[in-house]
Design a binder for these strands. Structure first.
Length: 588
RNA sequence: GGGGUCGUAGCUCAGCUUGGUUAGAGCGUCUGCCUGUCACGCAGAAGGUCGAGGGUUCGAGUCCCUUCGGCCCCGCCA
């Protein structure tokens, strides 16, 4: 260890107005340029870069020491701020008008050559960045992302505080509950054979906080889900969790809109007009083939089942007869697609679960149909009209059950929009999707499962449907969508013990099981539960959008790979047998 | 669980189709020269378990099998 001079300024701070000041800077050697009799060093900290000049006649002994400097050495440099010679200013740098002419140099730590350069535009594989995350995090662009994240935390906290919300921490070690995502389990040492779970969300706790009378709660909180990963999904992620008492949907939506407006406005200067447009789940599906529609571009889905209900083409008529739909999208200007491109789209549709893909190519007055043997010219004309297709367009048609056919079309819509470059990247399209179905039938489990979660209230007018036709019941649930990504979701909850018990029954959870798994909540509801509802924001995704990142990993300091590994510290990892014994666990 | 794609020098990649001298390039690194560079310049050098294991073959970076890992997607994600 050595004594060294503490910095008087940061590396992004000095300007021409500081000339003749004696200063000390500390930081990392970003670049060194040894011109023989003169050495330049770019010194970097998180605030910026300042050029240090070492001249033999003025710098003396420290010039000799400067010869040994290499990339990423940590140094402390003292000297005077000088103006650069005429014509030598670097206009692309904020500090580019000055140099610090060194008179003292202390090497605080040497460094090995990093496996990749510490700069914004690097071309390396992501696993390397993740393995050396501490070096990746030195890169200005990554630091900027985390600064945006920091600003977003602060704005969110301030907003909810000002609006009367109370920040309360809920347990990380909690009871494992059925329903929903797979839990991460934590074995109990004290209680033989028993396990905690890490929260998928603080859902039950926040509802109980409402029973406790806290009225308005929020928390910026880690959630854990042991499911497969994606570019926008990590096993542990951060939510802004919100719950309010004595509210309806409009109250929650309004608070959320305020939060989003403030966050996007004050963190990245994007003005978001509120209130956001609303669309029912049915509308979203039937127009965009998605429950999180990207409305930055049109190419809406069109359903034309009635046009082809009597078609001689059995694929069409049978689909309608079986209660399904025939629908399509119109890709503008894609009639030039080659056979192999169309085969590629057909393959894509099939991997998404379609039986096949029928297409129409419109060129001039003629319409070429891939099923022209069976589909009449009259029918193709009507289909083209239904989708408002023009000459030069390509129509893609999918048949099948409502949900499935529309979902596939939704994927094709995004695929074609990407291929045809139809997505304007400067738009911020926020959108509420409401009136989700309450339940959906799980073929895997042969029972109904909650679309949102088991505590979501049905729409009041749909409560009678719970007995007659549960699949038709709609939920008091809402999702906030930004440019085709769900960034928040919530609902008005059930606050009545009897209705909650009924809901569990519909989900195939019998009374004994409900009591065992959720007894504490049902019990709490018996002691004066206020009507309540809330929402949770996908914080990482929001920051991803704010920073223009392509992956959630770019806005998380220490993310995991798509196989849920941390390459830097190599977790998960094996543990000592002794640890397992203490936990009464054996690996099989 | 499934599909796609990638893995060769510190890094980014070429070589693989059609097996055959000593596996190449750029960047970086190291050494020398160089007093106004900022992608410094010039000259030279070092640097490889071709992800791992097995197989076919006289011979494998190249062909086959298995496996590990990265990324994207489907399923999954109340």
């Amino acid at each position: 260890m050595q004594q060294y001079k503490k910095r008087t300024h940061t590396c992004g701070q000095l300007r021409a107005s500081d000339i003749r000041k004696q200063v000390t800077l500390t930081g990392w050697v970003d670049k060194r340029r040894n011109l023989g009799g003169l050495i330049f060093v770019d010194l970097r900290d998180r605030h910026g870069i300042t050029q240090i000049a070492f001249e033999p006649d003025r710098s003396g002994a420290c010039y000799e020491l400067a010869k040994s400097l290499r990339s990423e050495f940590v140094i402390s440099v003292s000297g005077s701020v000088v103006s650069r010679p005429e014509g030598q200013a670097n206009k692309s740098m904020p500090t580019g008008e000055i140099d610090v002419e060194a008179t003292e140099l202390a090497i605080l730590n040497k460094a090995e050559t990093p496996p990749f350069p510490i700069e914004d535009s690097i071309d390396v594989t992501e696993d390397l960045r993740l393995k050396y995350r501490y070096l990746d995090l030195r890169r200005p662009i990554v630091q900027k992302n985390l600064l945006v994240r920091h600003r977003a935390y602060q704005v969110a906290r301030s907003y909810f505080d000002r609006n009367g919300f109370i920040e309360i921490e809920t347990p990380i070690l909690m009871k494992s509950t059925p329903e929903g995502a797979r839990d991460y389990l934590v074995p109990s040492r004290i209680h033989h054979g028993k396990f905690y779970a890490l929260p998928q969300s603080p859902q039950t706790y926040k509802q109980i906080l409402m029973v406790a009378g806290f009225d308005r709660y929020f928390q910026i909180v880690k959630c854990f889900r042991d499911e497969d990963l994606r570019a926008d999904r990590q096993p542990e992620f951060t939510q802004i969790d919100v719950e309010m008492s004595f509210v309806d949907e409009n109250d929650v939506l309004a608070i959320t809109e305020g939060a989003i407006k403030e966050m996007f406005g004050s963190v990245i200067g994007v003005d978001t007009p509120i209130p956001f447009p609303r669309m029912t789940h049915k509308e979203a599906m039937e127009q965009f083939g998605s429950d999180k529609p990207d409305t930055r571009f049109e190419m809406k889905v069109g359903i034309f089942s009635e046009v082809v209900a009597e078609s001689g083409f059995r694929v069409f008529s049978e689909a309608v007869k079986n209660g399904g739909i025939v629908a399509g999208i119109c890709a503008p200007g894609a009639a030039t697609y080659s056979r192999s491109q169309l085969d590629g789209l057909t393959d894509l549709a099939k991997t998404l679960g379609a039986g096949g893909l029928v297409y129409l190519k419109l060129q001039g007055d003629s319409i070429e149909c891939s099923a022209s043997k069976f589909v009449t010219a009259e029918e193709t004309k009507k289909i083209a009209e239904a989708l408002k297709a023009k000459s030069g367009d390509l129509v893609l048609i999918i048949t099948g059950p409502w949900q499935k056919a529309l979902t596939i079309l939704g994927s094709l819509r995004l695929e074609m929009a990407n291929r045809l470059n139809l997505i304007p990247h400067n738009k911020w399209n926020f959108l509420w999707v409401t009136d989700f179905p309450l339940l959906e039938f799980s073929e895997e489990d042969k029972r109904f499962v909650a679309v949102h979660h088991p505590f979501t209230s049905p729409k009041l007018e749909d409560i009678p449907l719970l007995d007659k036709d549960p699949a038709k019941a709609r939920a008091r649930a809402y999702d906030l969508v930004l440019n085709g990504t769900e960034i928040a979701g919530g609902s008005i909850r059930i606050h009545d013990s009897a209705l909650q018990t009924k809901m569990f029954g519909l989900l195939g959870i019998n009374e004994a099981e409900a009591k065992m798994k959720f007894g504490f909540l049902l019990e709490a509801f018996k002691y004066g539960a206020p009507p309540h509802g809330g929402i949770a924001f996908g914080f990482d995704r929001i920051v991803m959008y704010m920073t223009g990142s392509k992956s959630i990993r770019d806005v998380i300091a220490f993310p995991k790979t798509t196989s849920a590994m941390s390459l830097m510290d190599d977790s998960p990892s094996s543990v000592d047998l002794k640890q397992l014994e203490e936990l009464h666990i054996r690996i099989v």
